[in-house]
Design a protein around this nucleic acid. Structure first.
Lengths: 346, 346
DNA sequence: TTGAAAGCGCTAACAC
DNA sequence: GTGTTAGCGCTTTCAA
């Protein structure tokens, strides 16, 4: 007996009705005490609380949801559960919902609009009370459509509507700061490993790069631009391409830290020193960038705060008053992969 | 109108009853078609399917759950949603449940038994059909207790019971392999940065380190042992401690990649070359270790597979036959941070 | 094969 | 204040 097969769950579930009987009150009274919906005599409250403790009663959230339509569950559409970048946002969301009693259902969209839409549908079938979309490629119109059914908060996009809030960081300015930093160090030939083509963040960072050059009256040589894809391997390939083509440059701006990390390895392979031969700056400031050798200069994105902000904002929209969380601006974090351009070429 | 306040969700929900009416059949028939519970006349099936499509009907999972007790939701207790190590397992779990229609509720235990227990309780209140525990510090007895109510799969622990399956990788052997690799390279003074004290994985890897020395008849000098905590900063501190105390060593085995990464930075700060001056080996083989400079030798843990394995095993326990997934053994991945010990000390 | 009817466990009018 | 009652949307006997 009790060998391999899964045995039936033992304990019979105890219901609100059991509690009511045990405490000699009506089910309605128990419900009222549970939810604080109305005044209840102290004696009954005590009896009910005792009964709950004695019976170890836990209300069935499903029954409640069926009745109220409220599931106390929110949906979170992330892009990849493995991405260190989104992980921070998820942590912020987790913390943001900490005290509210809401659970979150996390689904991954893999930067594919069709998958995302499907994932959102799945969440809606599960009757989530609200939705947080971490970036993604759904059309504005699709998001708006979803928002007719539940409140949504979306990041990295400007989209306000009846039931939608959004938060967008200034990626353009980030790209500008990164480039300006390099320019300030005397670099005039700054390569740029672009992010995934067509994505707004890639584009904005690139535009910042361009504008910084323009303001500094430094021309941008198109050969300095290489396509990356926000991955380390993409960064590696991009850097190799630059090197193989014998492009002259003294600094690189990676569209994100992962690209920069890949580029840094490519440089290492060719025996190029960072920052003496080439300065590198990344974007995102992932935790691991602090432990690169040498530690990497980057643009810090307040991803964690964006997560908390999203959670609190959604809570507000769902009718739970929360103080709005402040999201700091992007910030240049100077470490050791960037230095003044070498005065003389050997 | 339609200004700032959240407007009421527009569409009225369409229920199974609506479908039944629309298709001129009874609700029971609709239910039967939905679940394939019984044979239904082809004509009615057609009518119902049409009605479903026309009305865009989506069954209410909550109502179903209330009736059947099945939520199609599983709980996943991870330790930190931010950890790159667990992220892989989560991805495996996500993929493992891909086709089954189960959603997973992810909660974090932060390596704290009390928090874990609380998180598990929360999951149980939400009536998850099963539970995956990714390591953690709950007592065996507590896990067994939980398992009286729902099937559980737990990783990195040996614990079999009526309603429990577990999977444990051979951390001892991993520690052994890492050390053996270094020993084989001629190193005889191998420092070890230990993991969190008291955790089984830390201990097992350390024991493997010891056994490898013993088998190679190389004595272990206790001064080579330093306490880390599985974090990069912990690894950095541990290495600084070694260096500050002028301990002589030619190689380091970090209890995990993060420790090794921290140690590597400490070495860099002192101008020590890896691997010429000091060889380093990590453990876990995080994706980022491939992009260290130089790329780090490590012990690969099949974390993703463990995640998939857990999902499939749980599915099996819950009555959904799945082929068991094969979890490969730990594996030494030799990269460039380890090399033969320098013949002569300068 | 199909329908009627009785709930699953809870909440919310509505009375008292 | 408190109890009675009628469902929320679905599944599942039980008859037909």
């Amino acid at each position: 007996m009790g060998s391999d097969a899964t045995p039936p769950a033992s304990q019979e579930p105890v219901t609100l009705l059991d509690v009511a009987r045990e405490a000699h009150v009506s089910p309605a009274t128990v419900s009222r005490i549970l939810n604080g919906t109305a005044k209840v005599a102290e004696s009954k409250r005590k009896a009910v609380e005792d009964a709950i403790a004695r019976l170890k009663f836990r209300p069935n959230l499903f029954a409640r949801s069926l009745k109220t339509g409220i599931t106390m569950t929110v949906g979170v559409l992330t892009q990849s559960i493995q991405s260190p970048f989104y992980a921070h946002a998820l942590k912020g969301i987790e913390d943001g919902f900490e005290a509210s009693g809401h659970a979150s259902l996390i689904v991954s969209g893999h930067w594919d609009a069709a998958i995302e839409l499907n994932a959102v549908r799945l969440l809606m079938e599960r009757r989530v009370d609200g939705l947080i979309i971490l970036t993604g490629s759904m059309k504005d119109s699709e998001v708006l459509e979803v928002a007719t059914r539940l409140p949504v908060v979306i990041t990295e996009r400007k989209l306000e509507g009846p039931n939608v809030r959004s938060i967008q960081l200034d990626q353009f300015h980030g790209g500008y700061m990164a480039t300006q930093h390099l320019l300030g160090l005397g670099h005039t030939r700054i390569a740029h490993i672009k992010g995934v083509a067509g994505r707004a963040d890639s584009e904005d960072r690139y535009l910042g790069y361009l504008k910084a050059h323009q303001d500094a009256k430094v021309p941008v040589d198109p050969v300095l631009l290489v396509q990356g894809d926000f991955t380390d391997i993409g960064g590696l390939n991009a850097m190799n391409q630059l090197l193989d083509n014998h492009i002259a440059f003294t600094a690189v701006f990676g569209a994100n830290d992962e690209s920069a990390l890949g580029a840094r390895l490519a440089l290492y392979r060719r025996g190029l020193h960072v920052p003496n031969d080439v300065s590198i700056i990344g974007f995102d400031d992932l935790p691991s960038s602090v432990f690169m050798t040498p530690p990497m200069t980057s643009i810090r994105q307040p991803t964690y705060e964006v997560g908390r902000y999203s959670a609190h904002t959604l809570l507000n929209m769902m009718g739970y008053p929360m103080d709005e969380v402040l999201v700091p601006k992007l910030e240049l974090v100077v470490r050791e992969t960037t230095s003044a351009v070498a005065r003389l070429k050997v």
